[in-house]
């Protein structure tokens, strides 16, 4: 104790130097080591797959060729989606924000839009003309401090028009015009006409599948309890996630729009992703299995078989 009293300043300075040195050593070692990891091969997949690599610590956008060959690109994204020659990349932007960057087929940056929160979903319409995204806004929940709400933006590359939030559209819930302040939208999927879209509306503890019109700026509810819709290329089906029980996790379902028949995708329990149609018959989604690393799975859209792993340590699947 006496020693401590006499030498406390010197001991304190020595401790500070030690802590700083240990931290620097650890960080340098980790950053060096990460380049060597993350090149596990993927599975063969019809049509190929674009995704974000999570194993390498750099979130590099990578591609899986139809034969399973893996190539790593240079773009760093948290979410990526490619369609019709257009790529949207939701990524970090210093000094503390996020942005959506849109690229053309040649890799030229067409536009960047600052985002108001943490990226969640990204989509491009089949034609490559309509880009949309959803972000979480922290500490913005209407119920408890520290909860969250969402902002969904839609960018029309033909006119350059940006809708910052779908909340500005006119919504009818079960036929009644909606006035409430507590409404959140997420997970947009746009049809081939680049005008019709589906999305999720959440208010209170209820979610709805909504069908909207980008030109008229309107939305109307279709059915309850369906989130993050994904319209099939032939536009006959919508895949979405839905809660199994009252407190249960999500599962993926495919709804036949003509008959209203809902099919569950086996093995999709615990999913939290907006599924992507790789072909008219297959869906890809990211999921973290219990006690495991995140991986991208492929599942037949008719629910006839269990999913198979396409690539591990990866997320954000896109055709």
């Amino acid at each position: 104790m006496n020693w401590f009293a006499r030498h406390r300043i010197a001991a304190g300075v020595a401790a500070i130097v030690l802590v700083v040195a240990a931290a620097v050593w650890y960080v340098v070692a980790t950053v060096r080591d990460q380049r060597a990891v993350a090149h596990q091969p993927g599975a063969a997949v019809a049509g190929g797959l674009t995704f974000v690599d999570n194993a390498g610590g750099q979130n590099l956008v990578s591609e899986l060729a139809p034969d399973g060959t893996r190539t790593t690109g240079t773009l760093k994204c948290l979410r990526v989606y490619t369609a019709g020659g257009t790529t949207v990349c939701l990524r970090m932007a210093l000094p503390g924000g996020y942005e959506a960057a849109v690229f053309d087929a040649a890799g030229k940056e067409l536009r960047t839009v600052a985002l108001p929160g943490t990226p969640s979903r990204a989509r491009v319409s089949a034609s490559g003309k309509i880009v949309s995204w959803t972000v979480f806004v922290t500490g913005d929940s209407y119920l408890a401090p520290g909860g969250f709400s969402t902002r969904t933006g839609v960018l029309d590359l033909r006119s350059g028009e940006l809708v910052e939030s779908l909340e500005t559209f006119a919504t009818t819930i079960d036929g009644v015009p909606d006035e409430r302040a507590d409404e959140n939208y997420w997970g947009v999927t746009v049809a081939a006409d680049d005008r019709t879209f589906y999305a999720t509306l959440g208010s209170g503890s209820t979610t709805w599948l909504v069908k909207g019109d980008l030109a008229a700026k309107t939305m109307a509810t279709v059915r309850q309890s369906a989130e993050c819709p994904s319209l099939s290329p032939d536009e006959t089906r919508v895949a979405y996630k839905k809660r199994g029980g009252r407190l249960g996790g999500w599962q993926l379902f495919v709804l036949d729009l003509a008959t209203g028949r809902e099919t569950v995708l086996p093995g999709s329990d615990g999913v939290d992703d907006q599924a992507a149609w790789l072909t008219p018959a297959t869906l890809a989604y990211a999921k973290t299995p219990r006690d495991g690393a995140p991986a991208i799975y492929e599942s037949p859209a008719d629910g006839a078989a269990e999913p198979r792993v396409l690539v591990t340590g990866a997320s954000s699947p896109s055709p």
């Binding site: 999570n54 979130n59 948290l78 929160g117 943490t118 969640s120 979480f136 922290t138 969250f148 999500w250 939290d272 990211a286 999921k287 973290t288 995140p294 997320s315």
Partner: peptide
């Protein structure tokens, strides 16, 4: 938020 959503791939909720 980043950790939960992107590293753990957990639900934000």
């Amino acid at each position: 938020p980043f950790y939960v959503v992107f590293s753990l791939q957990m639900s934000y909720l």
